[in-house]
């Protein structure tokens, strides 16, 4: 009952945000510059949330997320540009193939822990990148030119679905299984939880939504090149999750939005841009060592006075 209340609450909130923004766009108040920043926010939120389920919920330290994004981006670009199918098919196919890649990588590597897993996932992302670099069909190092098909609506709907699925997953039996792995893998194993199964599921869902984000990315920025998806991109995504607070869904969302705005704003100061950006990160981590939200969710903050307000 409570859960469904939060579910509908979120949906209503999403609809209101969508209506307001759409109204401002059709009213001419938001030109392409702001629309583009909004789309970018949506992409970054999706990436952050999809990595959150792997790192924040399941506690598996994966730093190869850009690899899944690359799969989604390239597969969807091939579907629209080479096969001429509509964007929605491209997004779904990109996401599914990306999820398959997640499954393929996850089954062997998720037996590893901590640093070892991090290095394995990093290696995977580099392999994906090098494959695209050497396939002439997708343009090799010169990259692949992609038409701009994404609109704010696509990006927003995708982000809402991503958040809904991942929030509901977290609250489900499976989600609790994942959390128990994060808290103590040996203990949950002893309790009869199939840890490998849950880890692979979380990893695959994360890869799926990273694929969606990649597909929207590739159809928004005119060209995709393998260098776009290098390990620095993976670290960018990791920063969103850690800065937002490991284990907090709303934290990842807020951090992704916050850093997108900071980055866009700082492009006015090219010389000092990266210095300020890094300073922002350092200051936030100094004053909020557990991230912006810690492990809390934004909904729990508004439940003052209420007795036993359960976390969403």
């Amino acid at each position: 009952m409570k859960k469904s209340k939060a579910f509908w609450g979120f949906l209503v909130l999403a609809l209101v945000i969508y209506a307001v923004v759409q109204g401002m766009i059709s009213g001419g108040m938001l030109d392409l510059y702001y629309q583009n920043i909004l789309i970018q926010m949506c992409i970054n939120v999706m990436l952050a949330v999809s990595l959150h389920i792997v790192i924040g919920i399941t506690g598996q330290f994966s730093i190869g997320h850009a690899g899944f994004m690359a799969v989604g981006a390239y597969v969807s670009a091939i579907v629209t540009m080479k096969l001429g199918l509509p964007l929605i098919v491209a997004i779904l196919l990109g996401a599914v193939i990306s999820a398959l890649a997640g499954l393929l990588v996850g089954i062997p590597t998720l037996r590893l822990k901590g640093d070892y897993l991090a290095i394995a996932t990093l290696g995977f992302a580099e392999i994906i990148r090098i494959i695209f670099l050497n396939v002439d069909y997708v343009g090799g190092a010169a990259g692949m030119v992609v038409m701009n098909m994404t609109t704010w609506t696509y990006a927003f709907v995708a982000v809402v679905i991503t958040i809904l699925v991942i929030a509901n997953f977290t609250n489900s039996r499976h989600g609790r299984g994942c959390i128990s792995i994060r808290e103590d893998e040996i203990a949950s194993d002893a309790m009869g939880i199939n840890t490998t199964y849950y880890k692979v599921i979380a990893f695959t869902i994360g890869a799926f939504f990273a694929g969606v984000a990649g597909a929207i990315y590739s159809h928004n920025f005119f060209i995709i090149q393998p260098t776009t998806f290098n390990f620095l991109k993976s670290f960018d995504i990791l920063i969103y999750v850690v800065l937002g607070g490991l284990g907090s869904l709303s934290g990842s969302v807020i951090a992704a939005i916050f850093l997108t705005v900071v980055s866009a704003y700082l492009s006015n100061f090219p010389e000092t841009r990266m210095i300020i950006y890094s300073l922002v990160l350092i200051i936030v981590m100094l004053y909020r060592p557990t991230g912006l939200m810690g492990t809390k969710e934004i909904t729990s903050l508004f439940k003052f006075g209420k007795k036993g307000g359960s976390k969403v």
Binding site: N36, I37, Q40, G143, Y217, N220, F221, F222, I223, I224, Q225, T228, A264, S267, N268, P270, R273, M274
Partner: peptide, 13 residues
Amino acid sequence: KVDNKSENSEATN
């Protein structure tokens, strides 16, 4: 002058 970080998405932005 605007910086594009040597990234194509930033170049579009």
